[in-house]
Nucleic acid binder design. Structure first.
Lengths: 142, 142
DNA sequence: ATAAAACCTACCGAAATAGTAGGTAGATAA
DNA sequence: TTATCTACCTACTATTTCGGTAGGTTTTAT
């Protein structure tokens, strides 16, 4: 019952991009350094986001990535479903043999799935950004 | 983000035991057959529940297992935490290096954790049993 | 005594996880 | 036009987890 680094790194990358929207295209190298993630591994995650039109890309010298939409258009749930596959805690597609155990648990798994997705879809990149600004502001006051 | 067979099988076993409370000690063989689970694999899961005083055991001839308490005393969340370990979707124990990405996500993971546990702790074996009875009743009517 | 049950320990193949490594292709600035 | 910086692509790999098997030992009602 864990979210893998793949999904977490994708989110961290997008948060980083959201923070640096004004900087134009941001090189993967910089994101990797700031977020303390292996750049090579990030390279492997990027195509997933790229294929879903999450990012705008510039290749070559001074190339990099940008968010293709404003941060309030990205739900955390959406990103995680892209990178992690379904967030559903149980595959109840096949082999629901109808044993009493499975029958009894099915509604529980469905409700849990609904709960998880509903919450994660309610949080956007913009929300995360707002909270970051707040935490930075607090740091300044103290 | 999946719950493994370990936790699901444990739940199915307990549901089976709850259904057969009146039958005295129930042999693992019977549970395995009814729930369509490898008995040998179940043998490996049982000690986890046994160590937490979930079960009463009788060894030897006509031995088997019983619930040590009434079904309303068992929360699904409790069973899953025993078998799966923490249900928390992210280990935020170490390496929270303070990169903006981690900082921003931390409250989200915590809230998700709270949500998951809160829901799963609200469902008891008795609830599952009640729903099963209902579904059996519906089958009879149709 | 014997059969049926729990209990225990070791092993094992496949898949997923979390990366590395090394190279190709495109864009820009000098 | 050439050097450099970037994205992009493909393959490999070590480790861990998952989902079991296999085979034996101990306990106990009959």
């Amino acid at each position: 019952m864990k979210i893998s680094t793949k999904g977490r790194y994708a989110l961290r990358m997008l948060i980083d991009l959201a923070e640096h929207q004004s900087s134009g295209y941001v090189a993967l190298k910089d994101i990797a350094t700031r977020q303390n993630i292996s750049k090579k591994y990030l390279e492997q995650i990027v195509p997933i986001l790229n294929g879903a039109n999450i990012l705008k890309t510039n290749r070559g010298f001074q190339g990099g990535y940008m968010l293709s939409q404003s941060p309030d258009k990205y739900a955390v749930g959406e990103i995680l479903r892209l990178t992690e596959g379904s967030l559903c805690p149980v595959d109840y597609s096949e082999d629901s043999e109808g044993s009493s155990g499975e029958t009894a648990m099915l509604p529980v798994w469905k409700e849990l799935d609904r709960l998880i997705n509903s919450y994660l879809d309610s949080v956007t990149l913009q929300d995360l950004l707002d909270r970051l600004q707040e935490s930075y502001a607090n740091d300044y006051i103290i």
